[in-house]
């Protein structure tokens, strides 16, 4: 007799779910090491497509796109994290105030408006105010839609921190600024790092909005990859994809462990 928690077939479904999720990624990773020029035939293990990415004819284009992607992601995630941290302190520690629920809706608005609509609206806005689309417009758009992603883990973390820690600090002669810097900020740190990492990945991931507001000649990695695969999937794209995949997995794993260690010290 098995307990009420057990349903036959649910384990198989879970495994099936994981297979579906991972199979394409594994296949692409494997084929990125394919020595053959044909993407169908297996020609033995080789690093040649990775070499091609860095030294091949398309290398300058990819390098520029990677540089843009990376710097935009770092800048956008930093800005969004700072903005979201301030917002989280106000929302969680600010008590009740007028316009609180409206502000909450505003923070989450980028999650509710469909991405393609945000893309259209942002393009129209930049063209209406006469701002030439390019690096700056991508950056502004990324900061905006990264805010809720940074906000969620930071606010969740802050909600778990009792206000008695700050009160204890104030009781022990700390000024408000000292209580923030010495007590609240270190306790919030895991949430802030998590928020930054999520915002960073979200920025790196974005294609649709970037594609609308990037302007001519400007590329990020996703738009460059998209441009290439429109002509068919080439092995060097698989090598780039595998590298980006590795970066994403690394970041998510980091974020996971930082969050877990954060929970441990809280207990």
């Amino acid at each position: 007799m098995k307990g009420v928690r057990h349903y036959p077939g649910f384990l198989a479904m879970t495994i099936g779910c994981l297979v579906v999720l991972y199979a394409p990624l594994i296949v692409v990773t494997v084929y990125s090491f394919n020595g053959s020029t044909s993407i169908t035939q297996w020609g033995g293990f080789s690093w040649r497509w990775y070499a091609d990415v860095f030294t091949g004819p398309e290398a300058p284009r990819f390098a520029a796109a990677a540089w843009n992607s990376l710097t935009i992601a770092v800048l956008a995630a930093t800005a969004a994290t700072a903005i979201a941290t301030a917002a989280a302190v106000a929302m969680v520690r600010g008590g009740r105030f007028r316009g609180k629920s409206a502000t909450f809706a505003l923070i989450n608005l980028p999650l509710m408006v469909p991405e393609i609509v945000t893309a259209v609206a942002t393009l129209i806005f930049f063209s209406a105010i006469g701002l030439t689309t390019g690096y700056l417009t991508i950056l502004i758009a990324h900061v905006t839609f990264c805010i809720p992603f940074a906000y969620l883990p930071i606010a969740a973390r802050l909600e778990g921190i009792e206000s008695s820690y700050e009160q204890a600090a104030r009781d022990l002669y700390a000024t408000r600024a000292q209580a923030f810097r010495l007590i609240l900020l270190p306790l919030m740190a895991p949430g802030i790092i998590s928020g930054f990492l999520l915002a960073f990945i979200i920025s790196l991931d974005d294609f649709i909005i970037t594609n609308f507001v990037k302007g001519a000649g400007m590329e990020t990695l996703p738009t460059a990859i998209f441009g290439s695969v429109k002509q068919g999937i080439k092995p060097n794209i698989m090598a780039i994809s595998t590298m980006m995949l590795a970066v994403s997995v690394l970041f998510v794993t980091l974020s996971y462990f930082i969050n877990r260690s954060g929970q441990k010290t809280r207990a």
Partner: peptide
């Protein structure tokens, strides 16, 4: 918590960047 941690008076300045970013670059668009 607002009273006891002293952030009540700072709500406006803390939220200003959010209002500006999302307001100007999403609501207005």
């Amino acid at each position: 918590g607002a009273e006891s941690t002293g952030y009540r008076g700072l709500v406006g300045p803390l939220l200003l960047p959010t209002w500006v970013m999302v307001g100007v670059f999403l609501v207005i668009p």
